[in-house]
């Protein structure tokens, strides 16, 4: 944030500094936004902000999942860390559909059997 850029020296870098502010491609974000049926027009600032917000979101999701996850000691981030975060953290709850918790087929069958047993008991 160099506010001291005097008008005369602020020349060619402007383009670079504006672009450097975000790394995700704005055109792709726009395409995703436009795939939403109700959306007709998006102004440039809204597009820029959504792109920037998406970057913040990626950072936040990764860091939260890493900090809450099981791989902190082994320095790794796995799918299950993400799935747990989606389930446990309210702000990430909207992700539970695309981040379902994985369970082993064997465990699933056992659960099914248990349910059946319980129902049989009744």
């Amino acid at each position: 944030l160099s506010r001291d850029m005097s008008a005369n020296t602020a020349d060619k870098d402007n383009n670079v500094s504006t672009n450097k502010n975000i790394s995700l491609p704005i055109s792709r974000v726009r395409l995703i936004m436009k795939s939403s049926p109700d959306v007709s027009n998006i102004n440039q600032e809204a597009l820029f902000l959504t792109t920037k917000a998406t970057e913040l979101f990626v950072q936040y999701l990764a860091v939260s999942s890493f900090n809450n996850g099981s791989g902190k000691g082994s320095k790794s981030l796995s799918y299950s860390d993400l799935a747990s975060t989606a389930e446990e953290k309210d702000t990430f709850h909207f992700l539970t559909d695309i981040l379902p918790k994985k369970i082993l087929a064997g465990d699933y069958l056992k659960t099914l059997e248990q349910i059946e047993d319980e129902e049989a008991d009744i």
Partner: peptide
């Protein structure tokens, strides 16, 4: 930190869903 391929793909999908969710709220 090693980020598994599956985790990276999941985060990427989550980011797309985030864009859609934010767009719908903003709209």
């Amino acid at each position: 930190v090693n980020v598994s391929k599956e985790a990276r793909r999941a985060i990427s999908q989550a980011a797309s869903v985030f864009v859609l969710y934010a767009t719908s709220c903003a709209n």
